[in-house]
Nucleic acid binder design. Structure first.
Length: 397
DNA sequence: AGTCCACAGGAAGGGCAGGCGA
DNA sequence: TCGCCTGCCCTTCCTGTGGACT
């Protein structure tokens, strides 16, 4: 037997820390959602009329990241579909995450995605937007009954393409004969409704459901529930759950973060062939998650964004401004074999990197010395080193 | 109070890729 | 196949801006 085969065999024989790892994935839907009874009930009573073929009110759901908005919405819709499936009412639910790049981040892409979800065929490009709208409407009309459209991260969409699209969606019922549409908008931004058109606002927020952040105790109970199903018995050291929930509670009560911490800590322990998950694993999980998030974000960026980031992390310490970055970037881009983009475009890409949380770019005025962005990289040294290596290898600089 | 800097960021338009219809 | 149309990415041109300096 080869040494690699031995390694695999040994892995198979080793007892896993996990009982069912899926439970610890953020996409997992538990049967019993803790601490969200009120929101589940509210949403359920708002959506219930669609079981009798009536169009329910539009709903606006908001709360910060990891407060269970998506989970509760999907859960209620699934239960609704089950009941509708048994009865005579026709019901369809379409869920779209508007933040997905290249999928639903422009008017065209979003309407194309909606149309496709409803069974229509739409090419990735080439059609006029009106034509895509038309296909979407036709697909809606074909469905008959009630269609619930769930638009997750709707705030990101509106920031990018404005609220005209939402306006059209809230008016769609006027043009449809056999189908009734209800919208559920999910937003992480609590002030989102303040910067949309008043007509859209009144129509979209006929009903509002607020998801407050979980507190430390609530997070602890949620984690306990997942641990019982996800981990084998007695593999968690004392204090692991408390530590995960405390860390996540300090980050706006983000349950997703708490569950990720727990899973990654378990993975780290298992990889090291340890019998128990300890708080030390949680600390390292915290670092690893941050590292992976940033690295993934950077990997998915276009080439020039990456060159700009590489330029920034290789600049001397001290104050860095847009102009300095642009000067160095031009040189770097040529060395990487590309024609440099204009300063205008680079300015936009810097703003995007800031939005991603990879760099900090704050607009400052230096008085007589002009207005610019002050740029810094607030990442852990090990993350910066990793990014530096990845980008250096990619561009052979 | 007025000037001036170094950009930020809005608007318009060009080039390209890709679909549609004749 | 070809002309036309569109979305997307990018450039060009432009106006706006906060605060140090005079």
């Amino acid at each position: 037997m080869s040494s690699l085969q031995e390694k695999f065999t040994e892995y198979l024989e080793r007892e896993s820390i996990f009982k069912n790892k899926d439970v610890l994935s953020t996409n997992f839907h538990p049967d019993n959602i803790l601490h969200r009874d009120k929101q589940v009930d509210e949403l359920a009573s708002i959506l219930a009329p669609c079981l009798k073929g009536n169009d329910p009110s539009n709903v606006f759901v908001y709360g910060t990241v990891g407060t269970g908005k998506t989970l509760v919405t999907k859960h209620v819709c699934e239960e609704l579909m089950k009941v509708a499936g048994n009865g005579s009412s026709k019901l369809n639910v379409v869920y779209i995450n508007c933040k997905m790049k290249k999928v639903a981040d422009t008017e065209y892409r979003l309407s194309a995605k909606l149309a496709r979800e409803l069974g229509a065929e739409v090419p990735a490009t080439g059609l006029p937007t009106d034509a895509v709208y038309e296909r979407f409407f036709e697909a809606l009309e074909d469905k008959t009954g009630v269609v619930i459209l769930v638009l997750d991260e709707i705030d990101a969409l509106v920031r990018k393409i404005g609220d005209d699209f939402l306006y059209n969606l809230t008016r769609v019922n006027d043009d449809l004969k056999s189908t009734k549409v209800s919208l559920i908008g999910i937003s992480n931004d609590l002030n989102f409704v303040d910067y949309i058109d008043a007509r859209v606002k009144s129509s979209l927020s006929e009903e509002e459901i607020i998801f407050p952040p979980y507190d430390g105790m609530e997070l602890k109970r949620i984690l306990k529930q997942r641990c019982e199903e996800g981990f084998n018995e007695e593999v968690l050291d004392n204090g692991v759950i408390s530590k995960c929930s405390a860390l996540a509670a300090s980050e706006h009560g983000d349950a997703r973060r708490a569950i990720d911490l727990l899973r990654v800590a378990g993975e780290l322990a298992e990889r090291e062939d340890e019998k128990k998950v300890t708080t030390k694993h949680v600390d390292r999980a915290q670092d690893k998650i941050e590292k992976d998030r940033v690295v993934e974000a950077v990997r998915s960026q276009p080439k020039h964004s990456q060159i700009i980031l590489y330029t920034i992390i290789n600049m001397d310490e001290g104050e860095i401004h847009t102009g300095d970055v642009y000067k160095d970037y031009q040189d770097m881009a040529r060395r990487a074999g590309s024609k440099p983009l204009t300063q205008r475009r680079v300015s936009d890409l810097i703003a995007e990197l800031d939005m991603l949380g990879v760099i900090n770019a704050r607009v400052v005025s230096k008085g007589r010395y002009g207005r610019t962005r002050k740029i810094s990289v607030d990442l852990d040294k090990s993350i910066v080193e990793k990014l530096d290596n990845i980008l250096k290898n990619k561009f052979y600089i």
